[in-house]
Write a protein that binds this DNA or RNA. Structure first.
Lengths: 340, 340
DNA sequence: GTTTTTTTGATTTACGTACATCAAATTTGG
DNA sequence: CCAAATTTGATGTACGTAAATCAAAAAAAC
């Protein structure tokens, strides 16, 4: 049988109350006594029964998710996954609240973060906007012992405990290699459609993409980036215009707004064999992959990201270890054959 | 606050004991009373606190993993992941035992399964060998209310509750499309290295591969399958021989034993531009991907499979729902850029 | 050595559920 | 209508931990 607090007390020759004081870092224990207890804990291999502890504490996990108010399929999906998680709240003892902040607005994000230090959630998940002020606010909260994970978009250089999202540089590199290999020995130009270069994940994807293109596919020239602001209408216009250029043989869409991209491709490129790689599996991109308008989709699974963020925050709140391999968010590559 | 059994008792106007009888399907409750309680449960939205229930029951989950005694990297990896899970046992209240059976030996597997119905584990995970006897044995255990999940290799047509593994037909199709697209417009022959056509997952991968090749890449001819028995030495000999054929421009290795494949490629194909797709990310295939000997690796994550199997078995044992999207084992596609 | 402070022990209640026991109430059969 | 059988209630203990109280013991300060 697994040892309990009683066994520890007996082994250390102290009372239950003292063991409790040590376990829960309560004051009033002499150093030598604390050592005795800790030795007993180590020797018996005691592990606190988290379920029993949470029961006794009546613990719940108030969590806050901070999301940008962006109107695109991916963010809608992310929201939906958080709602699913809220439905599971009773069973998971979580109490999840979402806060929407204007997208790409560091000041707004900072003020929300500052408000949180009064509210005392036991964990914060946030889609980070990359700015020095935000980094400072996050670091401050971490120092106040709030568990924080970044979601989808990271805040490198900050003290956040974990990042629940894909490696966007790797994603861009992968897109480049797929596109390059699919195009074989052909020469030509590549159009790149992004949302905005103000967003870190988009910048990173582009960075990864261009570096592999430059290193390994010198016959493919990358045209100036089209910034579609994740808006289908804007994306449509930009892509439609760009396709006037007959030298384009490939397209990489690294942001959202793919509905517009697909429409432009169907209107302007029926007679051409374009190779197209896009991000995020949505109803539109899925249909386009199936009808061969798109050749491959790179995806991050919003459901996994949300569940992982919750697991990590709970573990941090309890001071427990996380299974790193389990929490790595993988880059999904979908061809028409392995769609879920 | 979440309603408790006390609230249910009060709402239904019965005693705690009666609520308990209803909740735990104990006898001695009149039909009308049972209805009253069930109504109260529904109306208050009562959900049993599984942690408290397990605490009270002193519940553990004795689980059995049945694995083939195969000596290849993938099975070693799977074993390692199960050992990891065993290390987590105290925290997860599991009690995991593994049983090795001779590979590809339905009779041995059946006799192990029959032995289990006496041992009463609360769940069984097994790498299935595809045979009618096995199917029958599994169905028998399912009828005796044992939760059963198949691992890595499925047993379609049986009553198993869940399959923790990838869709191998989709994997084969994906391999074909990747290979076809990478080869572009080139014509030539494709060598296929398998472990054994007696294993269902290998048969399915081949089936998916050949069907996409036939449909979409008619210029590529598939040579007769080389059966390497997942053995590096055999694989090396077969591939080295096959590479005497100068018409070969691509290789698909759908089984294990890739160490031999890689060695053969390095010896015989230095001067040629072969496109190679292999299964399972191991130290050898990873190195080969990085040095461009292999172009893409398809992988199933053994850690995810094991953890998913455990989660599903526990949920089934408790009669709880599983999050389907979370338990879908995805096919990983690795290029050298998105290696973990 | 006495007082003050700090440390430790003993004990109790609580969390939400499971499960057992025994008595009381109700229903059923004859 | 009575006896037997069934159903229900009341109650207590247990699971492993948290957290509180108050008394007792030990250590530190004077």
């Amino acid at each position: 049988m697994r040892p309990t607090v009683h066994d520890i007390a007996a082994a250390a020759g102290v009372s239950l109350a003292t063991v409790d004081r040590v376990l829960n870092r309560r004051p009033g224990v002499r150093h030598v006594t604390r050592e005795k207890v800790e030795t007993a804990i180590r020797e018996l291999g005691y592990i606190r029964d988290v379920a029993a502890a949470n029961l006794a504490k009546g613990r719940t996990y108030p969590l806050v998710f901070i999301l940008p108010a962006s109107d695109n399929s991916f963010m809608h999906g992310l929201n939906a996954e958080i709602r699913q998680a809220i439905l599971r709240s009773p069973a998971e003892r979580t109490d999840i609240r979402t806060i929407e902040v204007p997208a790409f607005d560091p000041a707004a994000l900072v003020s929300v973060l500052e408000g949180l230090s009064r509210e005392k959630p036991c964990g914060i998940a946030m889609v980070a906007t990359d700015a020095p002020d935000v980094r400072a606010a996050v670091d401050r909260l971490v120092r106040e012992r709030f568990p924080i994970v970044t979601l989808v978009s990271d805040l490198t250089g900050s003290l956040r405990h974990h990042y629940a999202g894909v490696d966007n540089i790797a994603a861009g590199r992968t897109a480049a290699r797929l596109l390059g290999r699919f195009l074989g020995a052909r020469k030509g130009e590549i159009a790149v459609l992004a949302g905005s270069m103000l967003v870190r994940d988009h910048r990173e994807r582009l960075e990864g993409f261009t570096s592999v293109m430059a290193e390994e596919f010198p016959d493919l020239a990358i045209l100036p980036v089209l910034e579609g602001r994740d808006d289908p209408e804007v994306a449509h216009r930009l892509v439609a215009d760009a396709l006037g250029n007959a030298g384009i043989i490939g397209v990489y869409s690294l942001g959202a707004g793919n509905r517009g991209l697909v429409r432009a491709l169907k209107e302007k490129a029926v007679d051409r064999t374009l190779t197209v790689i896009a991000h995020e599996l949505t109803a539109h991109t899925r249909a386009a992959l199936i009808d061969n308008t798109i050749d491959a989709i790179l995806n991050q699974d919003a459901g996994h990201e949300v569940r992982s963020a919750i697991r990590v925050l709970k573990a941090k709140a309890d001071g427990l270890a996380v299974i790193d391999a389990q929490e790595r968010i993988r880059l999904d590559i979908f061809l028409k054959d392995n769609l879920p």
